[in-house]
Design a protein around this nucleic acid. Structure first.
Lengths: 156, 156
DNA sequence: CAGATTAGCTGTATCTTACAGGTAGTTCTC
DNA sequence: GAGAACTACCTGTAAGATACAGCTAATCTG
């Protein structure tokens, strides 16, 4: 609408449409894949896996920090963390620096299960991308990373 | 495990891990983005949008075909389609070739709303990818497409 | 110190989905 | 062409993930 540099603008519009389509499709396929994968992927539900990944990466932290980082409501994380504590995946301890807060840390069992799921998922992607050239895989990884970065810093 | 060309194999392992991480993150960010987007994205819920997209693309078809295509249980699609019918987005007519089946077709109103959501989403991606070079956008679109293709034809 | 803010939890509601079971129509087999 | 096997769809029910509102306790600010 605003610009009309003959081919250029139109092409880019088409590309955006393609990206929109493919992301929507990926969401759907990703969900379906998750639902259909074997038991080794489900020793941890999705939330627990992501939380453990984050704790392993960024260190012990409180529920609010997790919620912010994961784009989830605090109450959601509270419940997920409670379930994980029940299952022995994390421990919750009072924050020594803030009497209101609880610091969440992974347990060895949690880290071990996370590693198992991660290995299974990596294997799964190895299967899925079996025919790909290494440089294409690298390009995919780069592009996904940049897309996530853009999504995270999206203008609101 | 099987091969060990010193650097090569290890690099690829790392790349698979990155892809795994980025896809997981994209799922989470995509959900969060969807939840936080404005009303113009939500005149259609996610299911209705994808169903309309598919009907517009592939033509009227029955519930089972939709379910297979969308990787969803038939009962799920039945309910989604019922809701869409109630909202005037699609019509359901007995399949002339199969007395058991119902053919689902988009209504003009459904197509119109789909187009509106599509436009809003395309605009959103335009914002998100505002700083990107056109060729990077094209690469992203290609890679996503290839990934989806690989996921769809994944060995089971 | 009083009021405002923050961290976390609980109650409740919604949305999306799956699985199990039922009915009606279709195809296959002999 | 009659019965068995299958398929398409629907309904009942249940589970999981999440948000929002409201609560308590602790902390920060002026």
């Amino acid at each position: 609408m605003s610009e009309d540099l003959s081919t250029e603008a139109g092409d880019d519009e088409v590309t955006l449409g393609r990206i929109e389509t493919e992301v929507a499709m990926l969401m759907r396929l990703g969900e379906a894949t998750r639902r259909r994968t074997g038991a080794e992927h489900r020793v941890l539900d999705r939330a627990a896996y992501v939380i453990l990944r984050h704790l392993a990466d960024a260190g012990p932290q409180n529920v609010s920090a997790l919620a912010t980082r994961l784009n989830l409501d605090g109450s959601t994380v509270t419940r997920q963390v409670s379930a994980m504590q029940r299952d022995g995946l994390i421990v919750r301890e009072p924050d020594p620096h803030d009497g209101r807060g609880m610091v969440v840390s992974p347990t060895p069992a949690g880290l071990q299960r996370m590693a198992a799921v991660q290995a299974a998922r990596t294997r799964l992607y190895g299967d899925i991308l079996a025919g790909w050239a290494p440089e294409d895989r690298a390009t995919l990884a780069d592009m996904l990373h940049r897309l996530n970065d853009a999504l995270e810093h999206r203008p609101r």
